[in-house]
Amino acid sequence: MLPELLQGTDAGGFLIIQDSVNYSGRHLLWSFINAALNREEAVHVLGFEVSEEELKDGLKGSHIQRLHFHDAYTDPLGWTDQPAFTVHQFCLEKLTHLIKQTSQHKPATLVIDSLSWILRHRCPPDVCKTLQQLKKGGAVRVIIGLLHADMHQRGIVGSVCHLASSVITVAPGMKGDEAVAKTTKRSKSGKVMQEEAIFCIKEDLTVVVQSKPSHLGSRQTDPEEQETDPTANLTFNLRLSDTERKAKEKLALPFVFSKEKKSALLHSGPGSGRILYEPDANDDYDQEDPDDDLDV
C-alpha cells in the first residue's frame, strides 16, 4: 500500500504522515515530494520547521525547478515588517491565491511541514475547516501533511486524521535503517484498508518495502497490550468438565416439550370434554353494548 501511495494519490486526497519523537517522518515526507516532482507535478511546500536550503539540500538530484517553497520558517508569526508567509495566512483564500499565482494551470500538490506547527498556533476547528475546503477547492490536487502526534491531545489528532484519506504512522524498526509504517487508507466508498510493513529510505529518497507485518520478528509486546484472562483469579470455576457437559446436554429443560407432550396437548383423546354455549332467547345481549345489563 505504501508504494501505491508514493506512485500518486487520487485527486482530492489528503495524506497524513504521523510521527513521534521516537522516529521522524520528514524523510518519508521528502520521498513523497521527490516522487511528485519526478511525475512532473508542481509542488508547493509550506515550510514551518525546515528552511528552504535544508529542504533543497535533502532533495538534491530532484527536479526542484517545479518546487515552490513558501517560507514560513523565517518569520512564522509575522513579527517583522515583510514576512514571506505566516501561520495566520493559512486559510482558503490566501492559499488559493498563493498557489495560482506561482503555479501552472493544473492543480498542484500542497505539502505542509508541519501541521503540528499550525495546530499549535491556530484553532483546531479552523484548521480542519481550511483543510476540508482545500480538498474541494480545485486549486490543490493532493494535500500531504506531517503531523507530530505526541505534541497534541488525542482528540485533536483524531479530528485531523478523520479528514485524511490516508494516514501513515511511522515508528522505528528493529534495525537502525529500518522503520515500520502502519498505513490506513479510506476509499471514497467508505471501505477502510490497513497494512503494516517494514521499509527503508535510500539516499535518493526512494522507499524500499522490505517485508510485511508477519515478518516483523520477535518484537516484544507492551505489557499493557498483552491480553489477560479475566477468569484467572476467580474463587469458583466457570468451565465445565466433560462429565458435567454431558450431564447438562441430557438434562430436560422444564420449558421444552417433548414430542409426546406436544402430541397430547394438540390432539384431544377420548374422554376429554368441551364446553359449548348456545344463547337462549331470553338472553338480553346487545352486540353494540355488551355491558348494557350492568348498572353503571
Rank of each mutant, 00 (worst) to 15 (best):
G8K: 05
V142E: 15
Q220S: 11
F199Y: 14
V180E: 07
L92P: 02
L266E: 09
S272R: 09
G145N: 04
D284N: 14
E249D: 11
K262V: 12
G273C: 15
L5M: 11
F255V: 02
Q65R: 14
N233W: 08
P125R: 04
P124H: 03
V180P: 00
G13Q: 03
V160P: 00
I99C: 03
L146S: 09
A197G: 08
T221P: 00
E54H: 08
V140D: 02
V45T: 05
L55E: 04
H88D: 15
A84F: 11
L134T: 01
V21N: 08
T109C: 04
R122P: 01
M1Y: 05
G47Q: 03
N282T: 15
D229R: 06
I198F: 15
K185A: 06
E260K: 12
L15K: 01
V209Q: 04
Q226P: 00
N233Y: 10
Q65N: 12
S218H: 15
R26M: 08
D284C: 13
T109A: 01
D291N: 09
H121K: 04
D57E: 14
S116K: 01
L234N: 11
M193E: 14
G58A: 07
C123T: 12
D292E: 13
T243N: 12
A149R: 09
G217I: 04
D293A: 14
G190K: 06
Y285F: 12
L15G: 00
H97A: 15
G137Y: 12
E195D: 13
G61P: 02
D293N: 12
I143D: 01
Q101R: 13
S258H: 00
T235I: 07
P3L: 07
R245I: 09
N34E: 07
P279E: 05
T206A: 12
L163C: 01
A11Q: 14
N237Q: 15
V208F: 09
E195T: 11
S51M: 03
K175G: 07
K60F: 15
K262H: 11
Q101H: 10
S24F: 04
V296N: 08
D113A: 05
S241N: 07
E54F: 05
A36S: 10
E224D: 11
D75F: 04
E49P: 00
R141V: 00
G8Y: 09
Y277L: 13
C91Q: 09
S189W: 07
I17M: 03
A181N: 02
D204H: 08
T102D: 11
K188A: 10
D289T: 11
E224T: 13
D229F: 06
I16K: 04
I33N: 02
H27P: 06
K182V: 10
V157S: 02
L29V: 04
T130K: 01
Q132K: 13
R239E: 14
D19T: 00
V45K: 00
L294C: 08
R186V: 10
V157R: 01
H97T: 13
H70C: 05
R274F: 14
L251R: 14
A139C: 14
L28T: 02
D204G: 08
Q153E: 12
G271V: 02
M174P: 08
G190R: 05
Q210A: 05
T109D: 01
Y23P: 02
S189D: 11
L95V: 06
T96F: 01
T184I: 11
